[in-house]
Every structure is written in C-alpha cells, then in structure tokens.
Amino acid sequence: MIPLEYYLSLSAVLFATGVIGVLTRRNAIIVFMSIELMLNAVNLSLVAFSQYLGSTTGQVLVFFVMAVAAAESAIGLAIIIALFRNKQTLNIDELNLLKW
C-alpha cells in the first residue's frame, strides 16, 4: 500500500510546479493554467487526507474548491478576453493598468 506521504509529496511537487509557472511565465493564460495546477495539488492532498484519516469531509471540501475554480476560470477568461480585445496583448508585464 502506498503511504500517505507519497501522495502528499506528489501534491507538494505539483503545487511547486504551479508556483514556478505563475512566477516565470509572462503569458496570462499560462499563469492561469498554473493556478489550476495549484488548485489540483491542494485537491489531491485533501482527497489523500480524507482517505487515510477515514473522513469524507475532505472530499466535500474538494467540491467547494472545484466550484470556486470553475467560477474563477469563467471570470478569469472573461477578463483575459476583454483585456486582449482592448490591449492586443497577454503579456502580463505590459498589462499594468492598475499600477501607478
């Protein structure tokens, strides 16, 4: 049987990969995908805990995370499309409208 730590370490690596994506990539959609990666990593550790600690609560929380992720992707992509229409770029270094 696979120990709990294996699942958690896998989740940690997945999360760190997402962090790298957010920090190094300059395309807004890639940053967006990296956020999804991090959410998946958290979900994975929630499900692993739920199974190994014998409580279904973790799996219920996964559904709330999924609901927030779905809402976030809908809003985020709408913002990305509106930004692209106005600025013709998705390079987040050039998208500094809120900076002063």
Partner: peptide, 9 residues
C-alpha cells in the same frame, strides 16, 4: 501528472 505539469509550465 508530474511530467505533464512540467510540460504545462
């Protein structure tokens, strides 16, 4: 999972 996540990034 890990390989394709690396490819995504």
């Amino acid at each position: 999972t890990v390989a394709s996540a690396a490819l995504v990034v």
